[in-house]
Amino acid sequence: MNRKLKGTKALQSSVRKFCILFSVLTGLVLVSAGLSFVRLGGFEVLGIMLVAFVSVGIIVFYFMELGSLTQVSWLWAGAGLLWFGILFVLAMTDYLTRSWVW
């Protein structure tokens, strides 16, 4: 009985945590939508993507529980990101330097 009560308490606190995070994420969506209405000479694009990455970070760390996971899962979560970066950076290197003249 006692164990069950403890379980309920733990559950209540996680539900509360998730609800708070949900409101934060919803707020971030509105912030990025708001950013799309301003003109900051390209920096709004940066801001929008930054907000998106923060949201992704929150989902990964708290909802997907990466914070409490084994090292191996970290490794593979990181691998996905790293390789995504490789694809992006090396391919864009080509596009961004194609018109350079030496």
């Binding site: 969506v29 990025s32 939508a33 950013l35 799309s36 209405f37 003109r39 709004e44 694009v45 929008i48 993507m49 907000v51 998106a52």
Partner: peptide, 9 residues
């Protein structure tokens, strides 16, 4: 969502 909806302003 941001990529498709927001980036162009």
């Amino acid at each position: 969502f941001p990529t498709l909806y927001l980036l162009g302003g």
